[in-house]
């Protein structure tokens, strides 16, 4: 199986590589169009700020390539938000693949939402074998609301999308690579899709 990690200089790439290594899987880190198109699985990590990440994607025309992909695709953290439509972070037009907005958490609560929180309302092959209320590690200040594309929820304190799916595009707000055995299980489920 050929796994690629999209390289746009804004991801926590090494941690994802190590997480795959712990599962006995190898991935190539690349921004090359043919390499990405020919992969069986595409992983799209991301940390940082939305508008600069979008700018980085445009450097290699990745903003045009990613929406055309048809293989199982996994966006992680900012990688999830970049798949959405529009983010309140820097008033940024995102990739627009998943028709969901990205909003800022209410000013009355602490941001970033940082730490371990429960996953609930799980509904996807991505969560096969994962119990309702399992914990995952989150770090983010913006969130996608719950919509018909939500496949897992978390609450802070209001429910938000912990994971999204639209066609072949899967996306998780939490860090699978840092969420202990449960995170590893979810990553393995993605590789099994």
């Amino acid at each position: 199986m050929k796994i690629v990690i999209v390289d746009y200089k804004a991801g926590n790439v090494q941690s994802v590589l190590f997480a795959l290594e712990r599962l006995g899987a190898h991935a190539t880190v690349t921004s090359n169009t043919e390499e990405i198109q020919s992969a069986d699985k595409v992983i799209f990590p991301g940390v940082g700020e939305a508008s600069s990440a979008m700018r980085a994607l445009k450097v290699n025309n990745l903003d045009l390539l990613l929406p055309t992909l048809t293989q199982p695709f996994l966006g992680v953290c900012l990688g999830m938000q970049l798949l959405c439509q529009h983010s309140e972070e820097g008033d940024t037009e995102m990739l627009g693949i998943i028709p969901v907005p990205v909003k800022k958490f209410d000013a009355a609560i602490k941001v970033p939402h940082m730490g371990w929180n429960n996953l609930h309302h799980l509904k996807s092959d991505l969560f096969t074998g994962i119990q309702e209320e399992e914990y995952a590690y989150f770090v983010h200040s913006f969130y996608a609301p719950v919509t018909e594309h939500t496949i897992a929820q978390s609450s802070y304190p209001e429910p938000f999308s912990a994971a999204l799916q639209y066609k072949n595009f899967y996306a998780v707000q939490f860090h699978t690579e840092k969420s202990g055995p449960a995170g590893a299980h979810i990553l393995q489920n993605f590789l099994n899709l």
Binding site: V13, Q14, S15, F18, E21, V139, E177, S179
Partner: peptide, 30 residues
């Protein structure tokens, strides 16, 4: 640490430049 540990970690101590931070994050620090 990043190779073997699957929970988040922070690194501190004598960090004073953007370049120091870049290399730590690139190698797996959260």
């Amino acid at each position: 640490v990043a190779r073997y540990i699957d929970i988040p970690f922070t690194v501190g101590g004598g960090i004073s430049a953007v370049e120091d931070v870049e290399v730590l994050l690139q190698n797996g620090a959260d």
